[in-house]
Amino acid sequence: MRVEIWSDIACPWCYIGKARFEKGLAAFAHRDEVEVVHRSFELDPNRAKGETGPVVPMLAKKYGRTIEEAQAMEEHVASNARSDGLDYRTEGRDHGNTFDIHRLLHLAKARGRQSELLDLAYRANFAQERSVFDPEVLVDLAVEAGLDADEARAVLADEDAYAGEVRADEREAAELGATGVPFFVLDRRYGVSGGQPAQLFTQALEQAWQGRILTPIGADAAACDADGACEVPQPGAHA
């Protein structure tokens, strides 16, 4: 069975959702027969390459909040991440165009190191003092994931390298009706949106294994939409 996951490295619920999915997969009896493929989805494709800015002021502007309120939003997302065993820093992060990261992830996929690079990029973006919008940081992450440094630099230097693969993923997401991420498609039978609880992923895997048709499953869960907005549930709300 194949599970395809559309995500963006800039989306905190993709970071959290990946961890929850992996917990759900670990509880699935046929987990060794599941192929996981990560696909590209840009939350802010119109942002100029090289244009970066701090996350908290961006959140304040997007949601019409004060800086203090935006910081509280980050703290709440961090609480969700930490409850799943993930480190999450709420200050000093930046955001920007993620197209190059997606291109490099397609190189990693071709070399059988996609999940490794994705994990490293998530940790760099959400847990460490490393900007994933710096090409040299991306090369370092690629090497840590097991890729060749020169090959990674060559891909980043060639704007056409793996660009078609990224665009194809995004077109397919649109055809499947995905308006936000994370978005999970299980064997083209079930669609699961958002950072759902781990047990729901296990349930979805079991139902997809039984060969039923593609249909949404589960209540709405926190996600980042195609305009780049990331839902932040209020304290006490389902996440």
Rank of each mutant, 00 (worst) to 15 (best):
G177R: 08
L59T: 00
A29S: 07
Q114F: 13
K62S: 12
G211F: 00
G211K: 00
A149D: 09
V36G: 12
H106E: 09
M1L: 10
H30Q: 12
D227S: 14
Y122H: 10
G112S: 04
V192C: 04
E22Q: 14
E159W: 07
E172K: 12
Q114L: 10
R123W: 02
D150V: 12
V77C: 05
E136F: 11
Q71H: 04
E75Q: 14
D160Y: 12
G228L: 01
E170N: 04
E129A: 11
F133E: 08
G164C: 06
T215F: 14
E175R: 13
S79I: 05
G17D: 02
I5S: 08
R130L: 11
F184A: 05
F201G: 12
L176H: 12
Q71T: 01
G218D: 10
Y63R: 05
A27S: 06
K62W: 03
E159M: 12
L156H: 03
W6R: 05
E35Q: 06
L205Q: 03
H106Y: 10
G211I: 01
F41T: 09
D148T: 09
F99D: 05
A70M: 00
E91L: 10
G53M: 10
P12W: 01
G228Q: 02
A72C: 01
D225A: 07
S40R: 13
P197D: 04
Y15R: 03
L107P: 01
G180D: 08
L120F: 04
Y88F: 07
L200P: 09
D169Y: 00
D225V: 03
D187T: 05
A219M: 09
R31W: 14
R31Q: 06
N46L: 13
P135Q: 04
Q203D: 13
A142H: 02
R111C: 14
A221G: 01
A145E: 08
L105I: 15
D140S: 11
L105N: 13
T179H: 13
M1A: 07
A204K: 02
L25T: 04
I217G: 07
D119M: 14
A110M: 07
R212D: 11
R65K: 13
A19G: 12
E172F: 15
E4M: 03
H38I: 14
D160G: 15
A223R: 06
F28L: 01
V3M: 10
A149T: 08
A168K: 08
L156V: 09
P57K: 04
L118G: 07
M1E: 07
V77K: 02
G50E: 13
F201Y: 05
G53K: 14
A81P: 11
Q203R: 12
G24S: 06
D225W: 00
R212M: 15
D87G: 15
A239K: 07
D94W: 13
R39G: 05
N80L: 08
F21Y: 04
G146T: 11
P235G: 01
F21P: 14
V155Y: 04
R93F: 02
R20Y: 14
P216D: 00
A27Q: 08
A157W: 03
Q199C: 14
F41S: 05
A10C: 06
G164I: 06
F28D: 01
A221C: 01
L104M: 02
V137G: 09
Y122L: 08
D150Y: 05
D119L: 15
E91N: 06
V132P: 15
E136W: 10
C224K: 02
E170H: 02
